Simulated scan of single mutants.
Amino acid sequence: MSTNDPFARLPEAASFAVTSTDVADGAAWSPEQMSAGVPGGKDASPQLSWSGAPEGTKSYAVTVYDPDAPTGSGLWHWAVADIPATVTELPAGAGDETGSGLPEGAFQLPNDARAARYMGAAPPAGHGPHRYFVVVHALDVESIDVPADTTPALLGFTMTGHILGRAVLTATAENVA
């Protein structure tokens, strides 16, 4: 597994807690969170709950990123912006095509497949284990003010100066077929 740390070049931020009923930190994704292109996969975003965000948090963003994808730049699986500060949970499946499980005002950005939805894990066969960083970013602004069609990478760049805290859960997946 790669030692690539996606936070190594970012400003430090306070830590807070994120948990999921669908995956434990360091554990493998369940079939529901795998790509529909993988046997049993359903492209269902995980349930997430978070607590302990820093004082002054005015909104959240959630991202799912695989730094181990063989692209040279990793792979963004999901990005949600403008989650109100009063929200501390997303239900399983909130990242479907409609985004109907997202709170009012929040929106999904296109992932690296250019679909504004959660894209499940599908590491290439024989490529070894991949890590999926599920991150809740606590922000000091109510709206990060990016266009709905922007990339998750640009969202990350825009958030850099607004991150008060970061809650991280790491899931894994491997395709041994």
Rank of each mutant, 00 (worst) to 15 (best):
M1Q: 09
N4P: 06
P6H: 10
A8H: 10
A8D: 08
P11C: 10
E12C: 11
A13F: 06
A13Q: 06
A14L: 10
S15C: 05
S15Y: 02
A17G: 02
V18K: 01
D22Y: 00
A24Y: 05
D25H: 13
G26W: 05
G26H: 08
G26P: 13
A27T: 05
S30A: 15
S30L: 12
Q33H: 08
M34H: 07
S35T: 12
P39N: 13
G40S: 15
G40W: 14
G41M: 05
D43K: 03
D43L: 02
P46H: 01
Q47F: 00
L48Y: 00
W50N: 01
S51C: 08
S51M: 06
A53I: 09
A53N: 03
G56F: 13
G56C: 09
T57R: 02
K58E: 11
A61L: 07
V62Q: 00
V62C: 03
D66K: 07
D66T: 07
P67A: 02
P67R: 05
G72D: 05
G74F: 12
A79L: 05
V80D: 07
A81K: 03
D82V: 05
D82H: 09
I83R: 02
A85T: 11
T86G: 14
E89H: 13
E89W: 02
L90T: 02
L90C: 04
A94Q: 01
G95H: 04
E97K: 14
T98E: 15
T98H: 14
S100Y: 10
G101L: 03
L102D: 08
L102R: 09
L102W: 05
L102T: 09
A106T: 07
F107E: 07
L109M: 04
Y118G: 02
M119V: 05
M119Q: 13
M119P: 03
G120T: 03
A122H: 12
P123G: 08
P123S: 12
A125Y: 11
H127T: 12
H127C: 10
H130C: 04
H130N: 10
R131I: 06
R131E: 01
V136W: 03
H137V: 06
A138C: 12
A138R: 08
L139M: 12
E142I: 09
T150D: 15
P152H: 07
G156H: 07
G156E: 09
G161K: 09
H162N: 05
I163L: 05
G165N: 08
G165D: 06
A167H: 04
V168D: 03
V168L: 08
A171K: 00
A171V: 00
T172H: 10
T172V: 06
N175H: 10
N175F: 04
A177Q: 14
